[in-house]
């Protein structure tokens, strides 16, 4: 099980601040594809960064059971 956190516009589009995912290990790139295909509001996920356990992750990074994933749309702090 992995937890996927959503923020800002993605939270509003999906109506969820957390998605719990029950598939086994997969890469960041695979997760993005699946989310894009399955979750309404996440169709256009290309512009979103992925953080795994609070660090930005590349598409080839493997996500394991218990990891906390976050979808990070373009930031606008400051």
């Amino acid at each position: 099980m992995i937890e996927i956190l959503l923020f800002a516009g993605l939270k509003e589009k999906t109506g969820q601040n957390k998605i719990t995912w029950h598939e086994g290990s997969l890469t960041v790139g695979e997760l993005k594809e699946k989310l894009s295909a399955k979750v309404p509001g996440l169709e256009q996920i290309d512009y979103v960064m992925i953080a795994v356990n609070e660090a930005y992750a590349q598409d080839d990074q493997v996500i394991n059971e218990g990891d906390v994933v976050a979808l990070i749309p373009p930031v606008s702090g400051g």
């Binding site: 512009y47 960064m49 930005y56 590349q58 606008s76």
Partner: peptide
């Protein structure tokens, strides 16, 4: 609107900043 998001003009081709 969420700045930097709604317009979706900013993308990260490498998947990260």
């Amino acid at each position: 609107f969420w700045v930097g998001n709604q317009l979706e003009t900013k993308s990260y081709p490498e998947g990260h900043p």
